[in-house]
Measured scan of single mutants.
Amino acid sequence: MPSETPQAEVGPTGCPHRSGPHSAKGSLEKGSPEDKEAKEPLWIRPDAPSRCTWQLGRPASESPHHHTAPAKSPKILPDILKKIGDTPMVRINKIGKKFGLKCELLAKCEFFNAGGSVKDRISLRMIEDAERDGTLKPGDTIIEPTSGNTGIGLALAAAVRGYRCIIVMPEKMSSEKVDVLRALGAEIVRTPTNARFDSPESHVGVAWRLKNEIPNSHILDQYRNASNPLAHYDTTADEILQQCDGKLDMLVASVGTGGTITGIARKLKEKCPGCRIIGVDPEGSILAEPEELNQTEQTTYEVEGIGYDFIPTVLDRTVVDKWFKSNDEEAFTFARMLIAQEGLLCGGSAGSTVAVAVKAAQELQEGQRCVVILPDSVRNYMTKFLSDRWMLQKGFLKEEDLTEKKPWWWHLRVQELGLSAPLTVLPTITCGHTIEILREKGFDQAPVVDEAGVILGMVTLGNMLSSLLAGKVQPSDQVGKVIYKQFKQIRLTDTLGRLSHILEMDHFALVV
Score class of each variant (00 low, 15 high):
Q7V: 14
N149Y: 01
G259P: 00
F99T: 10
T53D: 05
P138I: 03
S27M: 14
T260M: 05
T193G: 08
T87Q: 04
I264G: 01
V118C: 07
Y163L: 02
T141K: 09
P200H: 12
I76E: 07
A107E: 06
K82Y: 10
S19P: 15
L42K: 10
R132E: 10
P46S: 06
L106C: 11
A207G: 04
G148M: 00
K267P: 01
P70M: 11
L106S: 04
A60V: 11
W43V: 14
G162L: 05
L230Q: 08
A183I: 04
S3L: 12
L241V: 15
C275W: 07
R266A: 14
Q7T: 12
G256V: 00
A114T: 11
A60M: 11
E144F: 03
T193L: 10
R224Y: 01
N113S: 10
A71L: 13
R161Q: 10
I122Y: 01
G85R: 14
D120N: 06
P192G: 05
G139K: 02
E40M: 03
P88I: 04
V168E: 03
A207N: 00
L124R: 06
P192M: 04
I95Q: 00
K177C: 00
V178T: 06
A183C: 14
P88H: 04
C15V: 07
K271V: 11
L268H: 00
E9W: 04
S175T: 12
S63H: 08
E34K: 12
N228W: 00
V206L: 14
R18G: 13
P49I: 08
S174E: 03
E187R: 02
T68A: 15
G20D: 10
G57N: 14
D245W: 03
K98G: 14
R58H: 13
P16Y: 13
A237C: 12
L81N: 05
I167P: 07
I84T: 11
T191E: 01
L154F: 05
L124N: 10
T260H: 14
P21F: 03
R58Y: 11
T146G: 05
N194Y: 11
E104N: 09
D245K: 03
A159E: 07
P138D: 03
I76C: 07
K30Q: 11
I92C: 07
K102G: 01
D234K: 06
S254V: 14
K30L: 03
